[in-house]
Amino acid sequence: MLEGKLEQASLFKKVVEAVRELVQDCNFDCTENGLALQAMDTSHVSLVSLLLTADGFSEYRCDRNLALGINLVSLTKILRCGNNEDILTLEAGDSADSLVVRFENTQQDRMSEYALKLMDIDQEHLGIPETEYAASITMPSTEFQRICRDMQSISESITIDCTKGGVKFTCEGDIGSGSVTLKPNSSADKPELCTKIDLSEPVSLTLSTKYLLNFCKATGLSQQVTLKLADENPILVEYPLSAGHLRFYLAPKLDE
């Protein structure tokens, strides 16, 4: 059986909120190491990979591997029944047909319990190959969100060019064009505001603005985001969590 307790429901609420537009039905794979979710969107353009490790839970127990088939629209409805500060417990038996979601307020004088019906989802497990990325850019997640938001009204695509000197985001559309360049910087007092670039060779990728902006729904989960780029490979957009990560992969646009 699975029993996982999170001290704040907000983490799980935010994670589900961040992925529910890309993925509707998916399996939450529960093992002794934690909860994992991996799913592609219906158009097979992007992939979500979530890991909540067992040490991120205040209590965690999973005796046998379980795949919990969940409709994220339904799960969202149930998660909205709890407050962000509530203690959240997820519970499912070995052959359970539902996931029990419990909320307890911090005063411990209000307990609520909901059961979400589980689905049988036949989901492919994909192997993500180890990739040698040409560039890794770590930057404030709010900055990345701002660039995607600003460029959304100009173009359907954003080109990311990374060189040693900096990273340049460019868009070109019917009304005109735009670019934002960020140079590496560091601040010892506020490391969350730093931009860091690790580069082995210059790289350029053109990506869908709509999908990048969708990934930015995870902004509230982490102050920093890491973009990893390799020529003609999917970009990896990673939001580190205190115990685990939320990763998005997006196939690049290719010139014909």
Partner: peptide
């Protein structure tokens, strides 16, 4: 014009 690629070629079904 750039064509949107898909992930299928990059990730293998286990």
């Amino acid at each position: 014009t750039a064509q949107q690629g898909r992930l299928d070629g990059f990730f293998k079904v286990l």
